[in-house]
């Protein structure tokens, strides 16, 4: 009986499974093959070579990769520190007020990211909301806060805030209250409770939140373009340029493959280390 159920389940899932498989993997496959085509060709029917990869390692694209990953790492760390107290409050303290915060954070997602970033440009630029008011009221002036690396990281933190916050809330909610109380009863200070109980027991949420915000930030482009001007070129920017202005699809493909490989292995590493069921379905092993 159970085996028959299993067979029916598998069979009925097969069509959509196929569609998903093809629609996810086919583009990847095309990119993978393009990445080993000679420079500036637009067909997959050429003799493969690895000139694009060679180019990446000789022409300074590594620097863009490092900027992307560096800023992604920084924004993820900042996000964790910023979101933890709020997430803790939402999971354990606020009760009804937590729902209010959830809605408030989700509402920001209703407006396109680019428009919100433009809002920040208008706020931070010289003659913008902040500098303009300061000058009008006090006569003091400064060069605006745009076009540097910290403001890009700020943009990443701002844009991916919900992606860290909500998984953290989920993770912290799974930490049993009595485990925290027992730790206190056994002599643990607040800091020791955080380190010995909260952190390991909410690890699934931390891993998911960090992966989401890191992966999104590593592939982000709008923040560095709009807020950062041309201060640094991130990897997503390079990929776009290669595909458009550069008219060099193999180079763009090779850059994409490297990005995918790094992010993919990080994700698999992270996900393997935690019990995702705890967060996704609430099942306990």
């Amino acid at each position: 009986m159970e085996r028959q159920d299993q067979r029916i389940g598998l069979l009925s899932a097969a069509p959509i499974g196929m569609v998903l498989f093809i629609s996810f993997l086919a583009p990847m496959l095309v990119i993978a093959i393009f990445s080993i085509m000679p420079q500036k060709v637009f067909s997959l029917l050429n003799l493969p070579d690895f000139s694009s990869y060679k180019l990446i390692f000789t022409q300074g694209y590594i620097k863009s990769l490092l900027w992307s990953f560096g800023m992604a790492m920084a924004s993820t760390l900042i996000l964790f520190v910023v979101c933890w107290p709020l997430a803790f409050g939402m999971a354990k303290v606020f009760k009804g007020f937590g729902l209010f915060i959830t809605i408030a954070v989700v509402v920001t997602l209703f407006v396109s990211e680019n428009i919100r970033l433009f809002g920040w440009v208008l706020t931070l630029m010289k003659g913008g909301l902040i500098e303009g008011h300061l000058r009008a009221w006090t006569g003091l002036t400064f060069e605006g806060a745009l076009y540097n690396v910290p403001v890009i990281v700020f943009g990443l933190v701002y844009a991916y805030f919900p992606f860290m916050l909500f998984p953290l809330v989920q993770g912290i909610a799974t930490v049993p209250d009595d485990a925290r109380q027992a730790a206190a009863d056994l002599g643990a200070s607040r800091w020791q409770i955080f380190y010995e109980v909260d952190l390991p027991l909410s690890a699934p949420g931390i891993v998911i939140g960090s992966l989401l915000s890191f992966v999104l930030a590593a592939g982000a482009m709008a923040e560095s373009k709009l807020l950062g001007g041309q201060t640094v070129i991130v990897i997503a920017d390079e990929i776009e340029t290669a595909f458009t202005y550069g008219q060099n699809w193999p180079l763009g493909s090779a850059l994409s493959i490297i990005l995918i490989l790094i992010i993919g292995s990080l994700s698999i590493f992270g996900i393997n280390r935690v019990n995702l069921d705890l967060i996704m379905g609430g099942r306990r092993s």
Partner: peptide, 29 residues
């Protein structure tokens, strides 16, 4: 506060730490 009192409680739920081994649980204090 509880962590500064020289008393200790065995909880109804026991409140063992699921991420620690038996030994680590016992050695926790």
């Amino acid at each position: 506060p509880a962590n500064l009192r020289p008393t200790c409680m065995v909880f109804q739920s026991l409140a063992l730490f699921p991420h620690k081994s038996v030994g680590e649980n016992i050695e926790f204090p």
